[in-house]
Amino acid sequence: MDILSETIAAIRTGNPTSGMFVRRAPWGRRYPVVPGGGFHVILHGSCWLLPPGGEAVALGVGDVLLMPRGADHDLADSLDSAIVETARPGEPRDIPGPGARTVLLCGAYELGRQRSHPILDELPEFIHLPARPGRHPGLHAVVELLAGEVAEPRPGTDAAIPGLLDTLLLYALRAWFEEQADGSGWAGAFTDPAVAAVLRIIHEFPERAWTVPELAAAAGVSRATLARRFTATVGEPPLSYVTRWRMLTAARLLRESDVSLASLARRVGYQSEFAFAKAFKREYGLAPGQYRRAEEKPAVIAV
Rank of each mutant, 00 (worst) to 15 (best):
H73P: 07
Q180R: 15
P98R: 05
H203Y: 15
I95E: 06
H140R: 13
G112P: 10
R30N: 13
I11Q: 08
Q290V: 05
G19V: 12
S263W: 02
T102C: 15
H136M: 01
A175C: 08
L43N: 10
R200V: 03
A151Y: 02
R252S: 11
R174G: 05
D80W: 06
A159P: 02
V198R: 04
R113I: 00
I11F: 13
P124E: 00
L65W: 08
I83Q: 08
P237C: 09
A262L: 10
P137N: 00
I161W: 05
P118V: 00
C106Y: 00
A175N: 03
P35C: 11
R115L: 15
A294W: 01
R29N: 14
V33G: 10
T225K: 11
L261Q: 12
S222Y: 03
A299Q: 14
T225G: 02
E152Q: 08
F190I: 13
L139V: 01
E204W: 06
V103T: 14
A175G: 06
E283S: 14
R208N: 04
T225H: 12
F274N: 04
G38Q: 13
G285Y: 08
R88V: 02
C47A: 14
L239D: 02
G134L: 07
E125M: 02
T7V: 15
P288S: 04
K281Y: 00
L49V: 09
L75W: 04
P35F: 09
A160F: 09
V212G: 05
S5W: 02
T249A: 12
E179D: 15
T233H: 15
G107Q: 04
E144W: 07
I202G: 02
P237G: 10
Q180H: 10
S78E: 14
T7N: 05
E236L: 15
R174E: 11
R252P: 00
A10V: 01
R88C: 03
E179T: 13
P137W: 00
V33M: 12
E122M: 11
L239N: 03
A232S: 14
L50Q: 07
T249S: 15
I11N: 10
T7Y: 01
E144F: 00
F274T: 10
G60D: 10
P162T: 06
V84Y: 07
R135M: 09
I83T: 05
P32Y: 07
P130K: 05
G14N: 13
G90V: 02
F126V: 00
L261A: 09
A196P: 12
D94C: 06
L253F: 07
G38C: 04
R93Q: 11
R113G: 15
Q114F: 11
T191D: 12
A262S: 14
G163T: 08
E207P: 04
T102E: 04
L226F: 09
H44R: 13
S272C: 01
A100T: 02
H73S: 05
D72S: 13
D166A: 13
R23W: 08
G235S: 09
P133Y: 05
P130C: 09
R282V: 03
P52E: 08
D80G: 07
A287H: 10
A217W: 04
P137L: 02
G269D: 06
P96V: 01
N15H: 12
